[in-house]
């Protein structure tokens, strides 16, 4: 789970606590890109770098109290997530972080018959591989737009799971959501992207 170029948490943590500059550089090299990726998902591109930098200072401040209930990587990403969330609240754009957990249906109810079977089933797509889909500039744009308009926690879930390949267990710890809520966030995010592709491909 840890980064291939990093020493184990057991070796690394005492060195970080001793303010070892080489270890600082090692861990920043290993995780900063990932941290910016997560911060972008929650607060957007404009202030993601700032949030990730802020998180490093918070990491050092909290490290003496780190209880090792997760890996160092998961714990650091949780700090990024919390820094980003509080930043979002401060900006108070009245974005509901939990919008995703409201009971909006996965499929437009108009597409289903009263017996909950398909009335308007999915159409065949023109392309049938990721590369073929992504070859279309227009579809890439649709996917980008759909990703950009996801609620923050949904975007974070899909970034960590489908782009970074983290485990669901780690993701739920990072985002501080229950296992079932984490799965709902992820499925809603994927479904919205699927609908965006369908609008383009299923014509």
């Amino acid at each position: 789970m840890a980064h291939p170029t990093l020493p184990s948490d057991d070796e690394l943590i005492p060195r970080l606590l001793a303010n070892d500059e080489t270890s600082y550089a090692q861990i920043v090299t290993a995780y900063h890109g990932l941290m910016v990726h997560l911060a972008r998902a929650i607060v957007g591109d404009a202030i993601a770098d700032e949030v990730a930098q802020e998180a490093w200072v918070a990491v050092l401040r909290a490290l003496p109290k780190f209880e090792r209930r997760s890996s160092l990587k998961t714990w650091i990403l949780r700090i990024v997530s919390n820094t980003a969330k509080s930043r979002l609240r401060h900006e108070s754009r009245t974005v509901s972080l939990d919008e995703s957990l409201e009971e909006s249906p996965i499929i437009d109810p108009a597409r289903l018959k009263p017996n909950a079977h398909w009335a308007s089933p999915p159409a065949m797509w023109h392309a049938d591989t990721p590369d073929a889909l992504l070859a279309s500039t227009e579809l890439r744009r649709c996917i980008s737009d759909a990703l950009a308009t996801l609620p923050p926690l949904q975007r974070a879930a899909v970034t960590l799971r489908d782009m970074q390949g983290l485990s669901m267990e780690a993701i739920c710890k990072i985002l501080e959501v229950s296992e079932s809520n984490g799965r709902v966030l992820l499925h809603r995010a994927r479904s919205r992207i699927q609908m965006a592709i369908e609008e383009h491909e299923g014509q």
């Binding site: 990721p130 990703l147 970034t159 489908d162 699927q194």
Partner: peptide, 20 residues
């Protein structure tokens, strides 16, 4: 199509870890 969507998300430009 959901499976294809997931694989496509993973290969999209947005999936690249930002360069540092």
């Amino acid at each position: 199509q959901l499976k294809l969507t997931i694989d496509t998300i993973g290969k999209s430009p947005e999936a690249t870890t930002p360069n540092v």
